[in-house]
Amino acid sequence: MFIHWGLREIHLKIVYYGPGLSGKTENLRYIYNRIDPKLKGDLVMLKSREDRTIFFDFLQLEIGHIDGKKPKFNLYTVPGQVHYDLTRKILLNSVDGLVFVADSQKEMMDSNLDTILDLEENLIENGKTLENFPWVLQYNKRDLPSAEPIAEMEKKLNFFNVPFFEAVATQGQGIFPTLKEVIKMVVAHIRTRLGEENKVKSL
């Protein structure tokens, strides 16, 4: 979080994490293509010739003035391929909320789990943990015939009982609900952390 009070801006950083090819870039691409042009900046994609993310994708969204403040959401995707571990660590710096994009294909369950564990390790290095952090699970590629049943995925991956969304990123299914939920969780998390609930009024 970064608050630029001179410009009344509130910056929140949301990172899309997940194994290689799970559909992280596809999430950002869909948001970019669908959202009102007034609300978005450029979509930056640092990728290889084969369209794999090698550093990150970036998209900044705004939603206008809220109560005199201007929230801006900085969305990033990480490169999912195993050997980009250091890059993923760099991208987690100052993260406020996470979307874990899991690949629903049966044969991908091990790499989904490995990647969650890798995420938790990297968060711990940053003084955070999945157990107490705003994040959601997105079960992507629900359109594929080899998709694992949701109940199974829940059992294997959702050990902290976070909100989950079924998605088909290539068709835009589940993309905006995922983003909306994680943003709401980020704000709720900041408020709880600061004990706002006990305060009567402010400003």
Partner: peptide, 22 residues
Amino acid sequence: EIKKIFDHEFQNLLGDALDRSF
């Protein structure tokens, strides 16, 4: 300061704005 910025009003209005924009 952060507490004041993330008040209840902000949280509610943000929720509405997200629904609208998305």
